[in-house]
């Protein structure tokens, strides 16, 4: 299992599988950081650095896609999505073009660059768009495999990647599949449903809880839309308590997706979201910000205990 940032898995896969002549990669002047440069160095003819003009990049990608290309439009998520909602809505989602929007440096994990660089509303933006699939890998291997999958997938996708290194969760025997979550740890008391960098935090939280004889499942949801409703339902029914964890605002992201799923399947269980509590964070290191804004393993563990208290109370009332 390989430690590394998800953006690195993306860059490596583009390099390894980019020989497909249908693949084109675009960037908006930050290709060194997003790792799309790895592709550009190897396949310069199919790499388009559009400069700092994200709207133009997204629509150029859409144009390439209408002519049969699979176009990866890459930039920092805050600019890629923040500046181009309209371009994505019209030229990508509504037109249903084969554009993969790749946003790196997501969440408050970005750290010292501060809130202008910490994208915490992108899942809300993209989940709300018809036709768009939303994927966030949790480690290097999953990012690598997902990138390979996206090369051969037809349709618009938002691919959410992180800047910081995460611990390896999967080895090469793992098979990434769009729409399928995976259980990293089976438990009976509650389930933590996490995405992205929060998967490793959730696994750390599970270790903290184990020391207190609390046994939780940890699920990685790498496809946020369409959600793996079956897995969510199975885990919710089995454990009777659900906690979601995401490096994103608590509005519009994974937590809301899971809540919708539970409600639509008539599953009523105690539930809490861990995420950025509808506020902008600040500058600081990832660890400091996760601690202060409630995304750390210890905070997730505390939230699990809060939910378990509700579960016990609701069981007592039955």
């Amino acid at each position: 299992m390989k430690d590394g940032a998800t953006r690195d898995g993306y860059g490596a896969a583009l390099q390894d599988f980019g020989d497909n002549p249908k693949v084109v990669v675009l960037d908006a002047g930050v290709s060194d950081s997003t790792r799309s440069k790895k592709f550009g160095d190897k396949f310069p003819d199919r790499f388009f650095n559009m400069g700092i003009s994200e709207g133009d990049m997204v629509c150029t990608a859409a144009g390439l896609a209408t002519a049969g290309k699979v176009a990866f439009a890459t930039s920092f998520a805050c600019f890629l999505l923040g500046r181009t909602m309209d371009q994505i809505l019209v030229s990508v989602a509504y037109s249903n073009t084969n554009v993969k929007l790749v946003g790196t440096h997501t969440g408050i994990a970005v750290g010292p660059d501060g809130p202008t660089a910490q994208m915490i509303v992108d899942l809300a933006y993209t989940r709300a768009m018809p036709n768009l699939t939303v994927i966030q890998p949790a480690d290097y291997e999953e990012a690598y495999q997902a990138t390979k999958t996206l090369i051969n997938h037809n349709g618009p996708v938002y691919f959410r990647l992180g800047r910081s290194k995460v611990k390896g969760l999967y080895d090469s025997s793992y098979k990434f599949e769009i729409g399928k979550g995976s259980v990293l740890r089976e438990g009976s008391d509650a389930v933590i449903i996490a995405t992205g960098v929060m998967v490793q935090e959730s696994l750390a939280a599970a270790e903290l809880l184990k020391a207190e004889n609390i046994d939780v499942s940890v699920v990685n949801i790498s496809t946020i839309k369409p959600l793996d409703n079956e897995l969510v339902a199975n885990q919710a029914r089995k454990t009777g308590a659900v906690i979601t964890a995401e490096d994103h605002n608590v509005f519009g992201g994974l937590g809301d997706a899971v809540l919708d799923s539970l409600a639509n399947q008539d599953i009523m269980v105690p539930f809490r979201k861990v995420g950025v509590e509808d506020t902008f964070a600040e500058t600081g290191s990832q660890d400091q910000l996760f601690e202060k804004y409630g995304l750390s393993a210890s905070h997730i563990a505390a939230t699990v205990k809060e939910v378990l208290a509700k579960k016990t109370a609701s069981q007592a009332s039955i």
């Binding site: 133009d56 990049m57 150029t60 990608a61 859409a62 144009g63 390439l64 209408t66 019209v90």
Partner: peptide
């Protein structure tokens, strides 16, 4: 404002 970028993308594909 979007069509020129799209047209350009198609042109690059050629």
């Amino acid at each position: 404002g979007q069509g020129l970028s799209v047209a350009h993308g198609i042109a690059l594909s050629a």
